[in-house]
Nucleic acid binder design. Structure first.
Lengths: 137, 137
DNA sequence: CTGGGTGCAAAATCTTTGCAGATCC
DNA sequence: GGATCTGCAAAGATTTTGCACCCAG
């Protein structure tokens, strides 16, 4: 999926348009239902395939990072996480909680904000070192 | 699951201990593998059941909010999200990106930070209004 | 033509649930 | 004793994949 040259497809284009026209952050199933009348023979598999391609192209964001399954944490104090996009490891970040963000969010949104979480992502130290070694050889 | 009085169980206690003793933010499967030698007959279902109870009790956090399936977003500019914990809707927040957070995260962690996301959660306007109406009646 | 794209269905992955027996209070 | 908990297995829910045919370049 890295070296592939993508062609055009009506389905993929329409999925992208649909996503651009909505602000409901739909799930794959919702997209499928939403464009079913345009493509009566559409299959859910095609929607998933195209979403992955669009995410790969950077035209669409998946609202979730890291692996597909849940992770658990027994630290109940507030803290943030760093997720390595290469190895998938999750690290705690000893950054003090930004309470003022919640006030700001509440102001611009009009919703009642009870909490927040921040995930940072990038390449962790150990993956970074490995990459350097590989590049050097 | 709201009115239930929980009893003690060795399995649940051990799962909690295991989570407190690690900082690897394990998945259910990892926990299962990790305590298998202590409970040879343990089943994955029990791990999931107990994780849900521990999360319900607030002793453990699930590193993910909202629904279980992915949501997609065609806005490629940086923005944050507000997730209503009652109806599950996802809203965009017009808060300017906090670039300085990434620098701070990089400093305390030693990892290469390439991005971040912030999810706020709480009760959205429309759910809030509904709740008031229900309370008033 | 050739390789990517599609629909369909089967498979894979992750999580929940029904049931019968064990356990806690 | 009765509700909760467990193991096991089956079912659910979400996502991916294999295959044969179709379509873009």
């Amino acid at each position: 999926m890295a070296e592939t040259v993508y062609r055009k497809s009506k389905q993929r284009q329409y999925i992208l348009e649909y996503l651009r026209d909505t602000d409901s952050h739909p799930t794959a199933q919702m997209i499928y239902d939403g464009i079913r009348d345009e493509f009566p023979n559409l299959s859910l598999g095609t929607v998933y395939r195209n979403l992955n391609i669009l995410v790969d192209q950077g035209q669409v964001n998946r609202l979730q990072y890291g692996s597909t399954f849940d992770r658990y944490d027994a630290d109940t104090y507030e803290h943030y996480h760093f997720i390595c996009t290469q190895c998938g490891k999750v690290f705690d970040l000893p950054l003090e909680p930004k309470e003022n963000l919640e006030a700001a969010a509440e102001k611009v949104s009009g919703h009642r904000v009870h909490g927040h979480k921040i995930d940072f992502f990038g390449i962790c130290e150990s993956c970074g070192r490995q990459n350097e070694n590989n590049a050097a050889s």
